[in-house]
């Protein structure tokens, strides 16, 4: 079975599928170490809000999506599948999940405002 052996858009090419797996493991470990280090240090510069959320949280979410991409593409070998199969798996998730996130978080923020500005005390 043929495998596509390069990651990072061809920047890194491996000799065999096994080597590619170890390469991806090293990459995922580095990303996790960065996440944990940032989570422990919490640099003050990253705590300012950007688009309604702390900069640090955006970094965490983006790094998570990066990790998810490499798990799906290399460990679940979506990279080796036909493009139509990949799209039919990934597109429904890419469309539905952000939609759900958007709807529910906007609604939750609205409820938060009602609770804090309303005439009912929630802390009595």
């Amino acid at each position: 079975m043929a495998h596509k052996l390069s990651i990072f858009r061809g920047l890194l090419t491996f000799k065999s599928n096994q080597q590619k797996i170890w390469g991806v493991l090293i990459f995922l470990s580095i990303v996790t170490v960065i996440e944990v280090a940032l989570g422990i240090v919490k640099p003050a510069a990253l705590l300012t809000p950007i688009f309604g959320m702390k900069g640090l949280n955006w970094i965490f979410i983006i790094l998570t999506l990066v990790k998810a991409y490499y798990i799906a593409w290399d460990f679940m070998h979506l990279r080796d599948e036909k493009k139509s199969l990949t799209s039919s798996i990934v597109l429904p998730l890419l469309i539905l999940i952000p939609y759900l996130v958007f709807i529910l978080l906007v609604e939750a923020d609205y409820i938060y405002n009602v609770m804090s500005d309303g005439f009912v005390s929630w802390d009595f």
Binding site: L85, I89, P92, L93, L96, I97, L100, V101, L104, L105, E107, A108, D109, I111, Y112, M115, S116
Partner: peptide, 28 residues
């Protein structure tokens, strides 16, 4: 197996987004 994973992924996103909902509701 892939179809199952897609539906299970949506289940988990439902749970995690519900968590996000409660968290944003009680953000302070």
């Amino acid at each position: 197996m892939w179809f199952f994973i897609v539906s299970d992924a949506l289940t988990f996103s439902g749970f995690l987004v519900a968590y996000g909902f409660s968290r944003f509701k009680n953000i302070d």
